[in-house]
Nucleic acid binder design. Structure first.
Lengths: 250, 250
DNA sequence: AGAATAGTGTCTGTAAGACACTATGCC
DNA sequence: GGCATAGTGTCTTACAGACACTATTCT
């Protein structure tokens, strides 16, 4: 039985004033990966404004409550603004928040990573005419000193990516629409930073039933190679065993 | 060469007024799991205030920029306030944010999940004298209708937990400090919702070298069982293969 | 022919599943 | 002895690694 002096939820919400409370800022950041010339690369943008004006950073920015429907939508918007790509592989990696990570105060950022084929991208100078570039990633790091804690965010995304490459078909999303098994293997090797046995690799990929033979051949190489395409019906494949290391030392 | 009319970063930060911008609210939520009587259980609290006053929800609340150093600290604070436990297994699962999920407006919440042994917990009525309870989780759901989108958050955490149980030693964190292999197997089975082959299970766990024999025996059962303890030196073990399903149908 | 790259045959090794078996206690 | 639970022996199966082999094209 409800006493009339109690506030209903409707009344509560009518009186609720969000501006009374201190809130952290909320942003998203995105490590956008591709593979170019046997190197894992990440898209960087040069910051046009303070703080860290002139530094390179991951793609990202504040959530705009007036524009963004949800968090994933905000990530897709940033990605679209910088690359023109609308439907890449996009996965949330981690959210970090602290008093220290942004000099403007307490901030929370949700970090996504995206995988896409380099040939889909026309780099766009975004709002503020910032310049953008691909930077090679080695051991989870780029040569440039990154703004904020973006070096740490990139390292976390790269570690997550490497981990998942051991038991999934994720690298397919880094390939152009048609490719050979050797090219796919090279992509795996680039991310893992080591050579793989080609027999094991082919057996693993082919038995997963995630590729379609186009019937075409790539004749740019010595011996022509079969050209495959990702099966549209296939989502990300999860293998039941990891790619393991070599069993013998060199 | 710097023109004197340019603003330095210091000047920029001195002038920066965070209150000029609309921000989403930022909170954390935590699915706190334990296993009691062969059932996976999650800790729920009854909301003392609007919105969803009187509904059950996961443990959580706003980040307090004045109190919390960082996101993980905020999660630990909530956990401590509700359970008194300070160092459980705690892992970030997902962050969701949208205009719709909280009637007070755009909100972002980072969801953690915690694993702990039921015998560590003295349930505490927290600030606002809310009541708390353990609720059994079946197929990722509890019987109660949860506040906000907490049913979806719980489902995501539970799915993540189930997935990781296939290739890690995570369930160790749900056990009391000493336990038998049968008890541990039962814990795995509870989470996975199916029986495991005991020979495979024992081989897997024992060869991982993560347990220590206490030398004691549990005599509550028909045949006494060796009692083990988690090796302090062992972190989470990642098996190279998943627990698979049965190979034959019944 | 020789080099380079694509692709196969087939052996070994490892860890999971199946399941019958033994071991130890209680009644 | 009969039951329940703990724990083992050992065969089969699935799939990764090793590596020598064949296949196709170019020069």
């Amino acid at each position: 039985m409800k006493r009339t002096s109690e506030v209903t939820e409707q009344e509560f919400l009518r009186e609720y004033d969000a501006s009374k409370y201190k809130r952290p800022s909320a942003s998203i950041d995105c490590a956008i990966y591709t593979v170019i010339e046997q190197q894992l690369q990440v898209l960087l943008v040069e910051r046009a404004e303070h703080p860290f004006k002139g530094s390179w950073s991951l793609v990202g920015g504040y959530i705009d409550p007036a524009v963004d429907q949800d968090l994933l939508g905000a990530a897709k918007r940033k990605l679209r603004e910088k690359t023109g790509v609308t439907t890449p592989y996009l996965e949330q990696c981690i959210t970090v928040g602290s008093k220290e990570r942004d000099p403007r105060g307490w901030s929370v950022t949700t970090v996504y990573y995206a995988l896409l084929s380099a040939d889909l991208v026309q780099l766009k100078a975004g709002a503020g005419a910032q310049s953008t570039k691909w930077a090679p990633v080695h051991e989870g790091r780029v040569a440039d000193k990154l703004a904020f804690d973006h070096a740490a965010l990139l390292a976390m995304c790269t570690e997550r990516l490497r981990g998942k490459v051991l038991y999934t078909s994720l690298p397919l999303h880094l390939m152009p629409s048609e490719f050979t098994l050797s090219e796919l293997q090279s992509c795996y090797e680039t991310i893992l930073g080591r050579a793989l046995e080609s027999k094991s690799f082919r057996r693993r990929i082919l038995s997963a039933d995630i590729l379609e033979d186009t019937g075409k051949e790539n004749t740019d190489t010595k011996r022509p190679a079969r050209i495959y395409r990702r099966l549209k019906s296939a989502g990300t494949h999860y293998f039941v065993r990891n790619i393991e290391g070599p069993h013998r030392e060199a």
